[in-house]
């Protein structure tokens, strides 16, 4: 085997500027998805604590729907379906919006699970001190569930980076789309996808390292 990597190198060099910008798109998309997903996840989780049974039902329905359907179906619905009723959104907007709804649902579920690990008397103590519901959420619940759910949230961040590659299916030119094009043009399939895999692995490694640093910074004894 061995593969014709020198030939691929020539291709990569020729396409370098566009590949770099495509890689930039992947990183940008992953970062946006991850941050939006955390904010959305916290928001959805907050709503699951609502006093209103109707709100809780709606939110649980939303979580079930997005966890129960493949994201690509939703992205296609927006990309190919919406124009039939006259709404045309850019692939970027669809990607950000679609992932936002999807990842928020997953993260919310992680936070809901972590919430079961909180101690009811601790929340009660906060209430007895005179804190409002919002303050209790911000000052006690959120800092604790985020820590308890950290491993799940971190693996979701890794998932986001890998999953962002599916947006090439809605004509969004991120890194995978760029490499895909090179593969098609050069017929160096093995070499191209091999290098593609390595680049994703590298991105994921960066995330893993970042997570470790965050973990060291934020871990608290007795809360994990």
């Amino acid at each position: 085997m061995g593969g014709n990597f020198p030939a691929l190198l020539v291709q990569l060099q020729a396409d370098l500027p566009s590949l770099i910008s495509a890689l930039g798109e992947t990183v940008l998309l992953s970062v946006i998805i991850t941050i939006n997903g955390l904010i959305g996840g916290l928001l959805v989780f907050y709503l699951t604590l609502s006093n209103s049974g109707v709100v809780r039902k709606i939110i649980n329905g939303y979580i079930s729907i997005f966890i129960g359907t493949p994201l690509i179906v939703f992205l296609f619905l927006l990309y190919y379906g919406l124009p039939t009723i006259g709404i045309r959104l850019s692939p970027f907007v669809i990607a950000v919006f679609g992932f936002f709804l999807n990842v928020s649902a997953y993260n919310a579920r992680f936070l809901v699970t972590a919430y079961k690990g909180l101690l009811p008397t601790e929340l009660e103590a906060a209430k007895a001190q005179g804190f409002s519901r919002g303050q209790i959420f911000r000052l006690v619940t959120a800092p604790q569930v985020l820590r308890l759910a950290a491993p799940a949230l971190a693996s979701q961040a890794i998932q986001n980076t890998k999953d962002s590659s599916i947006v090439f299916l809605i004509q969004y030119t991120e890194f995978f789309a760029g490499m895909q094009e090179i593969a098609m043009r050069s017929f160096l399939f093995f070499e191209t996808y091999f290098v593609t895999a390595l680049v994703y692995l590298l991105l994921v490694s960066v995330i893993v390292l970042a997570m470790r640093r965050l973990e060291r910074r934020f871990t608290i004894p007795g809360l994990s």
């Binding site: 008397t121 601790e122 103590a125 007895a128 608290i220």
Partner: peptide, 20 residues
């Protein structure tokens, strides 16, 4: 109620310290 609660210090059997 919240203002009144601030005037009452409540100490629980299980301490209920904020773990974080």
């Amino acid at each position: 109620v919240r203002a009144l609660r601030q005037l009452i210090g409540f100490v629980f059997q299980n301490f209920a310290l904020y773990r974080h």
